[in-house]
Computed example of a mutant assay.
Amino acid sequence: MKDKKQSRLRRARQARARIAGLKAVRLSVFRTNQHIYAQVISACGGKVLAAASTVETDIRKDVPNGGNVAAAQTVGKLVAERARKAGIEEVAFDRSGFKYHGRVKALAEAARENGLKF
C-alpha cells in the first residue's frame, strides 16, 4: 500500500511529463494546511516567471488565514496579474497531483477570471 504523498507525487510526475511534451508554460500549485503557493514556470522548466503565495506579507494583511478558499482566490488573482505583467496569457495547469477541488479549484478559477487561459 502506497502512502498518500507517494501517490500524489506519482500523479504529479505523470501530469508534468504530459505538460513537458506540450512545451507549455505551466501554472504549478502547491498547498499545505496553512498556505497555498502558485508559480508560473517557463516551458523549459528552469525559470519561475511569476509567483504568489499566502506567505507574502502583503497577502497576509488581506487574508489572516492562508489555508482557506478565500486565500486561494487571492493568490490565484495575484499570480494571474503577475503573469500577464510578464507577458504570459496561456498556461497549462499543473495541480501537482492534488484533486481539482476546494482550494486548488478556487485558485484556478480566480486565475482564469483574471485573464490566464488554460
Rank of each mutant, 00 (worst) to 15 (best):
E56D: 15
T57P: 11
E56M: 10
G46S: 13
R11H: 14
F98T: 01
Q39L: 06
K117R: 09
A72F: 00
A111N: 04
T74Y: 06
G45C: 10
T54L: 01
A83C: 08
N65G: 05
R16G: 15
G76K: 00
G46V: 11
I59W: 03
G102E: 08
R26Y: 09
P64S: 15
R31D: 00
R84M: 12
R103W: 01
V104S: 02
L116A: 02
V48H: 06
G67E: 00
K105T: 07
V55M: 06
K77W: 09
Q14W: 08
D58E: 14
G66F: 00
F30C: 08
H101N: 12
V104P: 02
V104H: 00
K85G: 10
G102I: 15
E113N: 14
K99S: 09
F118E: 05
I88D: 00
K4V: 15
S53T: 13
K77N: 13
F118W: 15
N114E: 12
G45K: 07
N65D: 15
K61N: 12
R8H: 06
K105N: 10
G115F: 02
H35M: 07
T32P: 02
A43T: 03
K77I: 09
A86L: 07
K47D: 14
E109I: 07
G87W: 05
C44S: 12
A50I: 12
A70V: 13
F93A: 05
E90C: 07
